[in-house]
């Protein structure tokens, strides 16, 4: 079986899990696994050092968000109704369906294997859904991180610039830092804000 299928399955499963899971900690774990798979994929197109940068930066971002959530005592697992979960599942399913609905034409514009293009679109789409569905700042930012990791998956096949990798790493860390800062502000008791 083609390795790309395994990667696509792992990306889709973790993306759907992060979308449906109510406990933010498990969502973070799912996105951390995505970064590990991203490292696995991009190490085939980028140098090992640059791929490692993406992994370490991704995990650092998750750790930042995780630490801020850990300190935010007021955050509890969200409670979604049965219908909400079905809606989320259907939306996530539609994103995966959408990624498969593309004909091979995008691969004529972008020299990326079609399955990785589908993986990138799935991650970006599910991340966008997570961002839109979340009210809590950390989860909205987590959604954006997922969008960016979907993009980085595709972009790694196009550009292997050290400068661009560094700038994207800064953006990822910056986003996570802002997410952590907003979570911290959100968690302060009324009097201390």
């Amino acid at each position: 079986m083609n390795l790309a299928w395994i990667h696509l399955a792992l990306f889709s499963l973790t993306a759907l899990f992060a979308l449906l899971e109510t406990d933010p900690r498990f969502r973070l774990v799912a996105i951390a696994i995505q970064y590990a798979v991203l490292f696995w994929v991009v190490s085939t197109s980028l140098s090992l050092g640059l791929a490692l940068v993406k992994l370490i930066v991704g995990w650092t971002a998750i750790a930042l968000l995780g630490a801020s959530l850990w300190n935010a005592s007021r955050i509890r697992p969200a409670s979604f109704s049965w219908s909400q979960q079905v809606f989320r599942l259907l939306s996530g399913g539609m994103i995966i369906g959408l990624s498969f609905s593309f004909s091979s034409s995008p691969s004529t514009w972008l020299p990326v294997e079609m399955l990785y293009l589908r993986s990138g679109i799935t991650l970006a789409g599910c991340g966008l859904l997570m961002n839109g569905f979340s009210r809590h700042p950390s989860m909205a930012i987590l959604g954006l991180l997922e969008v960016l990791s979907g993009f980085e998956l595709i972009y790694a096949f196009l550009v292997d610039s050290v400068l661009m990798t560094g700038m994207l790493a800064l953006v990822t860390l910056g986003l996570a830092g802002i997410g952590a800062y907003l979570t911290f502000l959100n968690s302060l008791p009324e009097g201390q804000r």
Partner: peptide, 14 residues
């Protein structure tokens, strides 16, 4: 603000 500005990044780069 963050979301819309961040979404511009992948589109412009690609």
């Amino acid at each position: 603000f963050i979301t819309l500005q961040t979404l511009a990044l992948p589109l412009l780069l690609t």
